[in-house]
Design a protein around this nucleic acid. Structure first.
Ligand SMILES: [Mn+2]
Ligand SMILES: [Mn+2]
Ligand SMILES: [Zn+2]
Ligand SMILES: [Zn+2]
Lengths: 151, 151
DNA sequence: CGACATTCGCAACTGTGTAGCATCTATGGG
DNA sequence: CCCATAGATGCTACACAGTTGCGAATGTCG
């Protein structure tokens, strides 16, 4: 045994976790799933299919396969899918709900999502028989950077 | 002069208003714009391009022309465009802001939009340099009718 | 009436997401 | 370690909302 510890411990552990997370659902830990899961874990905000393709670089995953991996991640509860203002899906880790305790702001210009200090919205009372499945405060505008650049 | 008043006064007045609304923007009051504007005025909720096409019936407006009419309505400030959960655009009258004083609930099943009693959300404080352009509380789920029907 | 910019209608195109199906592979049992 | 096989992958083709280009038609102003 000489240099088996050349790779950062962190990375190895993370990879292991990813494999376990996937296996736990009863599905196969395939390279495509592992790469996408790790990518989402490292992402600072929800990503589009296109952005993920870009991030994967040269060793691209097939377009359709990527869609299916993302679908699977959502169905298995590992990821969340939201619709952005440009009518495209954005994917993010469902995670431990760390981002459930505050609201978010999306820059219409650069597309980035920012965490705010504000608490999430409280559900209003609904008419009899109505059933709420999703509540989200949609805050759009321009971030400081983008406001500075253009105009 | 014999039967010039055969048509309901209301309709004539409305048509007149529509023409004026359009002319006021400096654009032409074409049949396509008038029909769509009147249709939106009569609509109980935001409509999709497809729904508007259907509603226009036999004397259809060209698909692309309809898109352009809708784009123009939005640009001229006469209509609003929102993105629904199925990632399609929905168009509604910008109107006198009657619906600005309360929140809305969208049924994921039938697509209808309901007016709630709850007040609209208050904008949270944003980081320095950030600029808010839109704030919307997104409430999705199932309406009473749809909850009853399917399970 | 014209003149003429605006608007329309058609055809072709883009971008995002799906479906079918043959091929490949991760994984558990021998 | 190898094999069988359910389950994933990668094509190709397709669906659908929305956009672009351009020649023809028309609303508006004089
Ligand atoms: Mn957050
Ligand atoms: Mn309302
Ligand atoms: Zn920005
Ligand atoms: Zn409903």
């Amino acid at each position: 045994m000489m240099l088996p510890h050349a790779t950062p411990v962190e990375t190895a552990a993370e990879a292991e976790t990813a494999v376990l997370l996937i296996r736990r659902t009863g599905a196969r830990a395939t390279p495509a799933r592992l790469r996408v899961l790790r990518l989402l874990r490292a992402a600072p905000a929800a990503l589009t299919h296109h952005q993920i393709e870009q991030a994967l670089g040269d060793l691209a995953i097939d377009r359709v396969t990527l869609y299916r991996v993302l679908d699977w991640l959502v169905e298995s509860g590992l990821a969340r899918r939201t619709t952005d203002a440009q009518r495209t899906f954005r994917y993010s880790l469902a995670a431990g709900g760390e981002h459930a305790a505050h609201t978010h702001f999306r820059c219409e210009d650069c597309g980035r999502v920012f965490c705010l200090d504000a608490a999430p919205p409280v559900p209003p009372s609904l008419p009899e028989g109505f059933c709420l499945s999703r509540i989200e405060l949609d805050l759009c505008g321009r971030c400081a950077e983008c406001t500075g650049e253009r105009r």
